[in-house]
Amino acid sequence: MSDQPVMTAHRAGLIGCRSCGRVWPEEQETCDRCGADLVPPDRRGLQKVWAWWLAGLVMYVPANLFPMMRTQTFAGLQGSTEATILEGMVELIHYGNYDIAVIVFVASVIVPLAKFLSIAWLAMVAGQPATVEQAHARLKIYEVVEFIGRWSMIDVFVVAILSALVQLGFVASIHPGPAAVSFALSVAFTMLSAQSFDPRLIWRGLPLRSRTGHEGQD
């Protein structure tokens, strides 16, 4: 946790296993202890991050434009309604459910957008020169993104449960809309994007005590 330069596996000509922590000679490709692929901490790994990120973003657009679900109440007597994520929230506010509206707003709007921005920023600054404090801040952001990403699935589960209520004869029919599927895919793709990001890259740009030219930043 100090400013002292730290010996890393990479600088020692070794490679650490991200799955179990075991250290191997740099040229080894698979961890003999846990069987995971050994990946060196370099910026090539970011391609995968960007690919999943883009897939997640592409899926996030229809998730907001199309309805999350279509409701037909009481055999269609009251007509059928379709609601997108935003319309669903407006409805919650209309009925005075402010706290639930906040949960849905945070889970389906704030968290996904913050996640897209954070991952893009982390991928862009990865490996760039940084101070120790900046590196700690970036690692914190990465940990928050990794922890919070799954929680965006709440809205998908809500739609699933409401659709299940059809079974109880509660309403004539509730159909999940196309947005439910694209939103679920968007969350899954962003989770994969965050998982593909290698946090070891955050530390690659830190200054070294003895600069020998080929080490450090790349």
């Binding site: 010996m7 020692a12 490679i15 650490g16 991200r18 075991r22 250290v23 191997w24 946090p199």
Partner: peptide, 17 residues
């Protein structure tokens, strides 16, 4: 062993040995 990595652990988050 710094050549084979035996007996060492690398932090999965920052690569410190």
């Amino acid at each position: 062993d710094l050549t084979t990595g035996r007996g060492l652990i690398a932090c999965p988050r920052c690569d410190a040995l």
